[in-house]
Design a protein around this nucleic acid. Structure first.
Lengths: 204, 204, 204, 204
DNA sequence: AATGAATGAGCGTTCATTCAT
DNA sequence: TATGAATGAACGCTCATTCAT
């Protein structure tokens, strides 16, 4: 049970994280000033430093939270879907849905976290690896079920995620297409059947 | 005909660009000091500023040069290949080959240029768009030849490039696989046939 | 009521202004380094920038303060003197007295502020205009009282102030005369009666 | 007799001085770049340094030339005028005439030369002293002729010149009055008779 | 817990001057 | 004589971090 003091502390901590998302996602890590985040969280610089020991730690905490939120939602959308390929499909839909609804989250994870320096690579690596594991698991299960032929599921999983990411990136940087989720059919088709398309329906 | 003074000037300009690639690719744009680039090019800071009016201009010139070199090589590898799908295949091989042989180039274009700030988005957008156009052209031609079914070639082209990029990214950040070009078969298969694999030979 | 923190902050702000007067007046605006002003105020560079957003702003604040102080003293010396010509006389005495006692203030306002660039012209213009207005007011009143004949009081007022300034300038640059206030009789006579001297007493 | 090579050298030297007047008068000493003067004189930086050993030397040469030209014209206008007070009057008219027709010269001598640093004070002092000597000589002669009563001619001469300067300054900084020479009557009256005006015409 | 004044290392940029050609 | 590439010291300013209150 939390005392009200602890609650207020948590609230403020969250306010800082919220502001940090906005500021970091808009200016990038290097061009974001602690001052601005403090101002945006209605806190003083000293207050911010009470909750986070350094700018780096704040950014890492933000990446942690953002990655975890994204993964949680994707995992939940996959839970309960028994067919492995449909599970991958659910992941695809959810990624597009989440990023499509959280432009800032997308900017943070796909753009700003990358160029922020080696200190953060690990975090981003972890996220990529977690996603790849999620997808690779689907593929491996599909293979073991004989639904798809065996292949290098590691590389395929990374490629799968990269394809999605890059489409999100285009949306972030050019604004096209207007609604990110419009890309779902094309992505689904490419990932399932490649550019050569679905196999001709049997029974010609 | 060039005077020897002009020749030395060009040489020095190139030395600066070479050093800039190394420094920017290793530390990122924000964490690279002009001082360090000057030192690495065996030049004075003032000398560097004689050739490039600002840090930003230097980075942009480097991005220009790197993008152009990459595109040139990929386009050359596609030239003369008549079959559109084989042309895409050639592009895939060449991208893996170039990046596999130029880790710094890969870091610069895939990692550091992204997070360096809005001023550089345009340049990176241009590169992405140029690649997408190259691939979309292959796909469109393949469609018009009846080799593959019609679909959203824009999105597919971005996804195609994104899949490749992300595999390169894994290689850059984790070192796996040891030789980037090992990913070629898996990527080729995924892009052509998706995760469901090549259609069973038809035996017409 | 001020907290002691705020008090110390005000103190430090004033220390910076004091040091700025010394440094700017001795080296001129362009040749004064912010570092030196910081050192002279027993402050860090960052501390200085906390109180003044730029070198220019610091110089402007200093000009503001110095101009206001000078004007305030001259206006006070004129207050309560009913005869307009005696009021002008009081202004003359006070200007010589203030500048004679504040060599740095004189250097700042008469020498360094002029050549510091167009950004500061406005400030100096304002000071000149305020002085001219003060004098022109005396002259206009004297005219309306019939004490002196009507003439171009604007130009006369600027000339009046210019005559004084230039004598101060000589004192600043050559050190002559030793005590600036020695110039009072000659200036008074020139301004009142010109080089042709006082009219022969009328003995009505 | 000059060889054509020497002539060309003199020409170029003069071109540099002409450009320097424009650039220094417009930006001030500190904010003028040697580069810009070189460009404005259709010369290279190295070429400029052939004629003048340093920026300081160039500025000094320019001040020398400008001061000498001004003094020469004023002295010529006074030559041949026998009445000492009319000689002062001629000087006044000529100063207003020269500055009124050479805004850049006026800026250079009255504004930019002052704040340019201690190195140039001597030059400006010399100019002021020369002017004061010119005026003081008139006054002394007028006194010895009994035309005006004896007084501190040194201070009066400086004040005389300062009054004129300040009116020129107002014209430079505010643009008023439109034609500088319009200030002549007011200045003449002030300098001759002071603010109390011409002695009442005899025979009232 | 929170404030905000203060610190100081570090950076991008400028520019008078030099010098090989 | 003249060119312009090169030098390097110096400067204004920023900002993550600290700390007295």
């Amino acid at each position: 049970m939390m005392t009200s003091t602890q609650q207020r502390s948590q609230t403020r901590r969250q306010r800082v994280l919220d502001a940090a998302l906005i500021v970091f996602a808009n200016h990038g890590y290097g061009d974001s000033a602690i001052d601005e985040i403090a101002r945006a969280s209605d806190t003083s610089k000293g207050g911010l430093y009470f909750h986070f020991p350094s700018k780096q730690a704040l950014f890492l905490a933000l990446l942690d939270e953002a990655s975890a939120a994204l993964l949680r939602r994707v995992e939940r959308s996959m839970a309960g879907v028994t067919d492995p390929l449909e599970r991958g499909d659910a992941a695809l839909r959810e990624v597009l849905h989440v990023f499509g609804g959280h432009r800032l989250l997308a900017r943070l994870l796909l753009i700003e976290a990358l160029g922020a320096g080696k200190e953060f690579s690990t975090k981003i690596n972890d996220l990529h690896a977690a996603f790849a594991a999620l997808i690779a698991e689907c593929l491996d299960e599909a293979i073991s079920l004989g639904r798809i032929p065996p292949h290098d599921t590691q590389t395929a999983a990374y490629a799968w995620y990269g394809a999605v990411n890059h489409v999100v990136l285009r949306w972030l940087m050019t604004g096209e297409p207007r609604r990110l989720e419009e890309t779902y059919p094309a992505l689904r088709s490419l990932l399932l059947y490649g550019v050569t398309g679905a196999p001709a329906e049997q029974e010609s």
